[in-house]
Amino acid sequence: MKREWLSRFVSWVETGSAAQPSANARPEKRSGAPAGGGAVKDARKKDRYRLFFNTYYTVAVIVCLTLVSVLIYTVFHLPFFGAENSPAANEVVKRYVEKGLDETGAVNIVAGMILDYRAFDTFGESSVLFLAVTSVMILLLRDENNIDPQEDLASAHEMVIEMDNQDLILQKVIKLVVPCILLFGIYVVLNGHLSPGGGFSGGAIMGAGLIVYSASYGSVSINRFFNMKTFRALTTSALLCYALSKAYSFFTGANGLPTGIPLGTPGAILSSGLILVLDICVGLVVACTMYGFYALFARGEL
C-alpha cells in the first residue's frame, strides 16, 4: 500500500510529458498482469463489496437494536404517561391556556401558540415549504439536462388523447365537486383561529381541489387560470406578506411598541389580529405548493 501512493506522488511530480500513463491506466500496470488480471481483479473487487455490505448490514442492525433498546429502557424513567403533574405541565402551558384567549384572541389555543407566541418557528416552517418547492423546481423543471424525447412523445400523445376523449361524466362531477372543495378549504383557512384547522390543513384541501381539477380537465385548461406566473405571484406575495407582518410584530414586540392591531371579539371571524392574515398567507402558500408538487411531478412544468 505504502509503495503505491509513494509511486503515485512521484508520478505527479515527475516532469516528463506525454509519455506518462494516464490516471486510469495506471492500476493495470501496477497489478503486473495487464491482460488476464482484469477478471481476477473484478472478482476480488466483488468479494470485497460483498464483505463490505455484509459487515455494513450487521453493524447497522446491531446499532439499531442497541438504539431501540436504550430508548425503550429510558421510557420507563420518563414522567408517568398522562399524569397531571408531569414537568411539561408548567407555567408555560398555564399562560397559553388561561391567557391565550385574551392575549392572542384565538379560540384555538394551538393556532394562537404557533402563530403568535412561537411564531418564529412557524415562519421557519413556511420557509421549509418554500424551499422544498424551489428545490423540486430545480430538479424537475424541464431544461437541457432534463429532457427525454421518448417521454415528451408520450406526454404529447397523452395530451392528444386528453383533448379527444373528454370524459363527460368525470368532468361534470368535477365541475360540481371542485367549487365545494375549494369553498371548504377557504372555510377551514378562515376558521383556523376558531376551530381545528388553519392555514396548513385548509391550504392542503385547496391544493387537492386544484389537483383534482387539473387531473380531470388536463393541463391546458388549468393553465388558463393557474400557470407559472400566477404560482410565482401568489407564493411570493403571500410569503412576503407573511414575512413582513411577522417582522413588524417581532420588531414592535422586542422594542416594546404597541402594534396598533385590534384583537377583536374572540369567536368572531374577524378577530385575533394578525393570526387571520397569517393563516390566509399560509393557506395560499400551501395550496400553491401542493398543486405545484403535483404539476412538477406529473408534467415537469407548472
Binding site: 384567549l101 394551538v110 412561537r118 413556511s126
Partner: peptide, 27 residues
C-alpha cells in the same frame, strides 16, 4: 386545546405545545 364555552381553565385542556410542535414537524 380549543376553548369551549369560554372556559379557560388549565385543568380542562391537554398541553397545547406538543400539538403545535407536531404541526411544525409534519410540514
Amino acid at each position: 386545546p380549543i376553548v369551549v364555552d369560554g372556559v379557560t381553565d388549565v385543568h380542562r385542556y391537554i398541553n397545547p405545545i406538543p400539538s403545535g410542535l407536531v404541526l411544525t414537524g409534519i410540514v
